[in-house]
Structure formats: structure tokens, C-alpha cells
Amino acid sequence: MDNLDNIRKIIIESLTYYANLRYATGKVNRLLIIDQDSDNYLILLEGWENRERVHGCLVHLQIIDNKIWIQRDGIEEGIATDLLAAGIPKNQIVLAFHPEHIRPYTEFAVQ
């Protein structure tokens, strides 16, 4: 398995775990969206909670130039924690939800 296939496998395994968790309250579904053609991986929240519509992105990862770009991270412990535990080094993870001028201080890749 080459590095890119390994990265995809780790992302899918990690997001599958979170997609299978039950939402704490209400009737909210977690939808795992995998687009390997464009290397976009998301969990969308969809449903109702206390008469309020819930619809939005919980987490969005992209693979760009063999690095994982975390575009959105609504995971409590942070999805980067899972990626690191799976063996992805910090220099292969970009915290894209931080502005570029902040990224050098994160210990992760800048781009």
C-alpha cells in the first residue's frame, strides 16, 4: 500500500468511527461523505434537535499534495489527535482552519 492509500485508509477509519457515534440529543444523523476522486472526506450533521433544524459540517478533511488539510474540525478532542495516534506525522497535517499567519505556531505543517 502506498502512502496516499494509507492516508486515505486512516482518514476513512477515523471518520467512520465518529460517523457511527449517536448524537447526544435529538434526531440528528451523522452522514459520512467520501469522495476519493477529489480527496474530500466529511461528516455532515442532519436532522432536528428541540424543533431546531440541524444541518452542517462536523469535520472536513482534504488531501492536498499528500498532506491532510483539516478544513473544519468539530470533533471534541480534535481529529488531528486521531491522525497522530494512527501514525500520521505532524508535518503531514495542516490545520487549515487556522489563518496562515497562525499555522507556524501550531507545530503542524504550514501548507
Rank of each mutant, 00 (worst) to 15 (best):
P104M: 13
H98P: 00
F108T: 08
R22C: 09
F97R: 06
T106A: 03
I88V: 14
L44R: 09
S14Q: 01
G47P: 07
L32S: 00
P99W: 14
S38P: 01
D2T: 10
R103A: 11
R103C: 12
I7A: 03
S38L: 12
G74N: 13
H55Q: 13
E100I: 09
S38N: 14
D5Q: 12
W69V: 00
R51G: 14
N40K: 15
R103T: 13
G87L: 12
E52I: 07
N40V: 15
L95H: 02
L83Y: 12
R53Q: 11
Q71T: 05
D82I: 07
Q111G: 15
V54Q: 13
A85V: 02
L32P: 00
A80F: 04
R72Y: 13
I12E: 02
I7W: 02
S14N: 04
L4T: 06
I93H: 09
V110F: 06
D39H: 15
V94M: 05
I70E: 03
Y41M: 12
I10E: 01
N6K: 05
L95C: 02
G78C: 00
N6H: 00
M1W: 11
W69R: 09
K9A: 05
I93S: 06
Y23N: 10
A109H: 03
G56R: 12
I12Y: 01
D5R: 04
I63Q: 04
I70K: 06
L61M: 09
E107A: 11
A109K: 02
R30L: 01
Y41E: 09
K67M: 14
N40I: 15
V54H: 10
I75E: 08
K9Q: 10
V110W: 08
N91E: 15
N40D: 15
Q36F: 04
L15V: 06
I7R: 03
Y105A: 06
V94K: 01
D65R: 01
I102T: 12
E46A: 14
R53S: 09
L45V: 05
Q71N: 07
W69D: 01
W48L: 15
R72P: 03
H101G: 12
T25Y: 14
C57T: 14
I43A: 06
Q71F: 03
A24P: 07
F108I: 08
L44V: 02
K9H: 08
N6C: 00
N6V: 00
I64V: 14
P99K: 15
E49M: 09
L95Y: 05
G78R: 04
L58G: 03
E76M: 10
V28S: 03
P99M: 13
N40W: 13
V28D: 03
N29D: 11
W48S: 14
D37E: 15
C57D: 11
L4M: 05
I64K: 15
A80N: 03
L21W: 10
L45S: 04
V59H: 08
F108K: 10
I93W: 09
L45M: 12
L4Q: 08
E107M: 10
R72L: 12
A24C: 04
